[in-house]
Amino acid sequence: MENSSPFTHLDSKGQAHMVDITEKQITSRTATAQSLVSFSADSFTKLTENNPKGDVFAVARIAGIQAAKRCAELIPLCHSLALSNVTIDFNLLPDTHQVQVLACCKLAGKTGVEMEALTAASIAALTLYDMCKAFDKGIIIEHTCLLEKTGGKSGHWQRASS
């Protein structure tokens, strides 16, 4: 029965189902996502200079990698993927007191890694919040989005610059 729903995870009757990827081709796939974490000026200074919590970014990086690896356990109907690489990078934006969290996931497989990258960026950002909440509960996490993906039937996609 063909799926007439625009939602890939709903069948023609509107019932949730896992997408069947059995017949899809294995291709190299990547996805890069971001989360933006905004701090007060004082908190940004504490985070980036002589942080009493140690290497906050190392902890957040590990959390993001773990999140990507466990994505299928967190999001219903996600396929369990054998990731070949996950990177988490932090770009410090001192003029705006922000940290841009970038998560990139790669694999050779039958389905994309967008959800893994988005989950990794989100959890790394949440970990930054957790590590800094003792001195700033006003931290804002925003602009979590997919920046770019490659591979699969839809090919290359990149977010337009805003």
Rank of each mutant, 00 (worst) to 15 (best):
L118C: 14
C105M: 06
F135S: 05
L93G: 08
P94G: 13
G112M: 09
T87L: 14
H143R: 10
V113C: 03
A134M: 04
Y129C: 07
H97L: 11
V113G: 01
G138T: 04
E116D: 10
G109N: 05
M115I: 11
V99Q: 13
A103Y: 01
L93D: 06
G109C: 10
H143K: 11
F135E: 06
L128P: 10
A121M: 06
D89N: 14
K106F: 12
I139G: 01
F90S: 12
K133V: 03
A134N: 01
I88H: 03
S122P: 07
A125D: 13
L93I: 15
L118E: 07
A124K: 13
C105I: 06
I141W: 01
T119A: 03
G109R: 10
L102C: 08
P94Y: 14
G109H: 09
G109F: 06
G138S: 09
T127E: 14
T127Y: 04
T87Y: 05
I139E: 01
K133F: 02
T127H: 06
Q98C: 12
L107M: 15
Y129S: 10
A117G: 07
K137Y: 00
T119S: 12
M131T: 04
M131R: 07
M131L: 13
K137F: 00
D136L: 02
T96V: 12
I140C: 01
A134Q: 04
G112N: 14
F135W: 14
T119R: 02
D130W: 01
Y129T: 08
T87D: 15
Q100G: 02
G138K: 08
L107D: 07
G112I: 08
T127K: 11
A120N: 08
I88E: 03
Y129K: 12
I139D: 01
S122W: 04
D95L: 13
L92F: 15
Q98S: 12
K106Q: 15
M115N: 03
D130K: 01
E114V: 07
S122M: 07
V99R: 09
L128S: 10
K133M: 07
F135I: 12
